[in-house]
Amino acid sequence: MSEQQTLSRFLEDQKEEVERRLPGYVAHLDSPEVLVSAMRYSLEAGGKRLRPILLLATLEGYGVSLEKGYDTACAIEMVHTYSLIHDDLPAMDNDDMRRGKPTNHIIYGEAMAILAGDALLTQSFEIISKSAYLNDSEKAKLILHLAQAAGPKGMVGGQVADMEAEKKSGLEVSDLEYIHHHKTGDLLAFAIEAGAIIASADEEECLLLRRFAKNLGLAFQIKDDILDVEGDAEEMGKPAGSDETNGKTTYPKLLGMEGAKEKLDMHIQNAKEYLLQIKKDHKLLHELTRYVAERTR
Rank of each mutant, 00 (worst) to 15 (best):
P102V: 07
P102N: 05
P102K: 02
P102E: 09
T103W: 06
T103R: 05
T103N: 11
T103M: 08
T103V: 06
N104F: 03
N104T: 15
N104C: 15
H105E: 07
H105D: 01
H105L: 03
I106G: 03
I106A: 03
I106W: 04
I106Q: 14
I106H: 10
I107S: 10
I107P: 02
Y108I: 01
Y108G: 09
Y108W: 14
G109L: 06
E110C: 02
E110V: 14
E110P: 12
E110G: 13
A111I: 01
A111K: 11
A111T: 04
M112W: 00
A113Q: 13
A113Y: 14
A113V: 11
A113M: 12
A113L: 14
A113P: 08
I114P: 09
I114C: 14
L115M: 15
A116N: 05
A116W: 12
A116Q: 08
G117W: 03
G117Q: 02
G117F: 08
G117I: 07
A119K: 12
A119V: 12
A119G: 14
A119S: 15
A119L: 11
L120P: 09
L120E: 04
L120G: 00
L120D: 06
L121C: 12
L121K: 05
L121R: 07
L121Q: 12
T122L: 01
T122D: 00
T122R: 03
T122Y: 00
Q123D: 09
Q123C: 11
Q123L: 12
S124F: 12
S124Y: 05
S124I: 06
S124V: 03
F125R: 05
F125I: 07
E126F: 07
E126Y: 11
E126I: 14
E126V: 13
E126G: 04
I127Q: 12
I128Q: 03
I128D: 00
S129T: 10
S129E: 05
S129M: 13
S129D: 02
K130Y: 01
K130Q: 15
K130F: 05
K130T: 05
K130G: 13
K130I: 02
A132F: 05
Y133S: 11
Y133M: 09
Y133N: 14
L134A: 07
N135P: 02
N135S: 05
N135I: 01
N135R: 13
D136R: 11
S137P: 04
S137K: 15
S137F: 06
E138M: 05
E138D: 09
K139I: 04
K139L: 03
K139N: 03
A140Y: 09
A140S: 11
K141S: 15
K141N: 13
K141R: 15
K141M: 05
L142K: 01
I143L: 07
I143C: 03
I143Y: 08
I143T: 06
L144Q: 11
L144T: 10
L144H: 12
H145M: 08
L146N: 02
L146Q: 03
